[in-house]
Design a protein around this nucleic acid. Structure first.
Lengths: 233, 233
DNA sequence: AATTTAATTTAGGTAACCCAAACTTTTTAT
DNA sequence: ATAAAAAGTTTGGGTTACCTAAATTAAATT
């Protein structure tokens, strides 16, 4: 933590220095709690960060010291307001960079994650603002994930799994619930992209796989697995 | 150092992992030797990196281990071919990012250095290639510094100090030899930008300051200091 | 050549990460 | 209720990259 002159406003304000590692912890805690809502244990955090659970304890204490999380050994960790703000800012950066890479630098949606993981830690408020403006303040990233706005507000997109779509009704792919390269490449191979329309023609009883009609009239079978990861509206 | 499958060529190749700190050492050694040509001592490296000279020894040994530099305690350090390649790649990234920030994200030339210092360490060959292509393979950055091409070749720009310009002859500003924000802001205030034409009208004998005529016919005095940092052709 | 001065190295220490293994607490199941 | 399983913590150790102070080595001066 470091005291810094804010320069513009004429008074001092605390500007917390959050290390790259700390940011990754905050992201992991966010992604583990924002749906379930509750708290996360060390184990799950360790898993998400692919580190040893033994390493987590110390860092959680440090994050609590910095008032970025609330933490009790038995119940686990939850982000404070400050921690939430920091986590969402990292996510905003990540998703804006992904949008940039796909939109302007000819990256495929399965190639951007690793690089965005690096770019999300670049520290510059002006860069963040200007990048967002350059991209036209996009609401969603190349995977359909919502991009938080400057105040941390996430656009809401109500979508459901393709697996739950009504037969015969036309739906539009708006998001993928799995950003791994392998799944995304599989979708590319099938000819399925964000924004495409799909009609479910049949459900196979024995394995819940779907026979669907893509935009080019082409019919393909999608496994139950896959249809749970393709989000539509 | 890590063994990695190169993927494309079908054989294994060594891919050296160079840390951020190591990259900064290579940059410092490069910038201290590429003009003078010789070798650098610990002191100068320490100064450039704003660390203690005692800290340098260990790292230089490590860089020598990795065959990125040649090092003898008495003569100092010099980049090997590999080290040079690595250093130039970092510089290429730095200058391309600066070009991007100024060209597309509304940054002023005095605002980009710090951010480029972060961005230059992002690891992705595709990103580097695509960024360069997006920018149109520029030859010079916003300060007039040459951007090495993919093979590490630097475009050469023969320029001289404004201080050495012939009186009455029209010259063009092509580079600044000082990238500090304070100097760049000073130039902004004087209304001097890259590409501008200047005519030297008078040299003041007593302090070597110049009375110059800018493109808008405006006449200003420039200190000898300043005229040594404005490069023209 | 002897001395002063400058540069470099050594030695010992700190801080932020990480791990493996031992240990403790909590939870679950019998 | 108590043993087994699961989850969390502590201990001891490792790495990287930095620090200071003291010792050493090389260079420059006298």
């Amino acid at each position: 933590m470091k005291l810094r002159n804010s320069g513009k406003l004429g008074y001092f304000c605390f500007h917390m220095i959050i290390s790259v590692t700390e940011e990754n912890y905050l992201k992991a805690i966010f992604s583990a709690t924002h749906n379930a809502g509750g708290k996360v244990g060390n184990q799950l955090i360790a898993e998400k960060l692919m580190i040893n659970p033994a390493s987590v304890t110390e860092m959680l204490r440090k994050l609590q010291e910095k008032k970025l999380i609330e933490y009790t050994r038995t119940v686990g960790a939850r982000l404070t307001k400050e921690g939430m703000k920091a986590a969402i800012k990292v996510i905003r950066k990540h998703r804006l960079w992904e949008t940039f890479l796909v939109g302007h630098l000819n990256f495929k949606w399965d190639e951007v994650h690793e690089i965005a993981e690096q770019l999300e830690h670049i520290q510059s408020d002006k860069l963040l603002d200007e990048l967002a403006a350059f991209l036209g303040e996009p609401d969603f990233d190349p995977h359909g994930d919502p991009i938080p706005d400057k105040n941390g507000k996430m656009p809401i997109l109500k979508s459901k799994m393709l697996a739950e779509a009504t037969i015969g009704k036309k739906v539009r792919v708006v998001k993928v619930a799995d950003n791994t390269a392998s799944f995304l490449k599989y979708l590319d191979k099938q000819g399925i992209a964000l924004g495409d329309t799909i009609i479910v023609n049949e459900i196979q009883d024995f394995d819940q796989s779907l026979l669907v009609q893509l935009k080019g009239k082409k019919e393909v079978y999608l496994s139950a697995e896959a249809t749970k990861k393709i989000m539509v509206e």
